[in-house]
Design a protein around this nucleic acid. Structure first.
Lengths: 135, 135
DNA sequence: CTCCGTGCAAATACTTTGCAAAGCG
DNA sequence: CGCTTTGCAAAGTATTTGCACGGAG
């Protein structure tokens, strides 16, 4: 019907939402967000497709916070800030590279390992929770 | 019986094990390790005490990997390497500070947040899983 | 007596999985 | 027809919690 697509309709909808979402969503959030427009979507399908995307290298996991895994479809190297109050996650603009190849070499020698990737997470309070000043 | 102590016998045993453990243990590992010498220890007690230690600032969580939370009683600022094969966690000697106060300031301004702490995790293959060479 | 710590088991919460049916080329 | 995707519900797994008991002071 449409031009050739690689994904089923539901898979495509899930992926598109992940790409456009700026909140580093949970599986539950994806499910709830799509439910109105795809009433017969099931949570298992969301989990399965997220798993597929991860295996394909289309998304990555930021980690598990407050009991729920958070995902990111922005595969460029960047760091995150997470608010320990509301668990909002923000991208840290990567204009500055905190960790470079030299650091990889340093750690690889120190630890006798092979490094594939790294993650930096900053923890703190976001401006909305830090209610002393407006955002 | 003993000199004044702050902790109950079980709490003390759990904390001492956490301090001496070099493997960034899980609650389950702590439980299994102490079970032989404390046969009536229960897993709930381990979880509860770990929670107490965390609230007291005696230990911190490194994150959840392979479905289990990993803890560290070394409260000095340092980074970790984690093997994506066997989930072994190694300390990265902090002779080099990867992230300093300037970076905190940079991120705080960029994101309009207040930063309390940060974590760096390197992912890769440890020398034991990288079986091409001996360790 | 009172309080804190504990064992035990049940409850939680998120995620994964088995299976049969539906979808699609 | 054959392979993929899905809904549904059940299972799985790590962790948390309710409750009554027990020990220390």
């Amino acid at each position: 019907m449409h031009a050739k697509r690689n994904f089923s309709a539901k898979r495509e909808a899930i992926y598109k939402l992940l790409v456009s979402a700026k909140n580093h969503p949970t599986a539950e959030w994806v499910y709830e967000s799509l439910k109105p427009e795809i009433p017969d979507l099931s949570l298992g399908t969301v989990y399965r497709n997220i798993s597929v995307f991860r295996e394909m290298g289309l998304i990555k996991s930021i980690g598990i916070f407050n009991g729920q895994e958070r995902f990111d479809a922005d595969m460029s190297q960047h760091s995150h800030f997470i608010c320990t109050e509301c668990f909002k996650i923000l991208d840290v603009p990567s204009g500055k590279k905190f960790v470079d190849g030299n650091i990889y070499s340093f750690v690889e020698k120190e630890c006798n390992v092979t490094i594939k990737s790294h993650n930096i997470i900053f923890y703190g309070i976001c401006c909305m929770c830090n209610n002393s000043h407006k955002c």
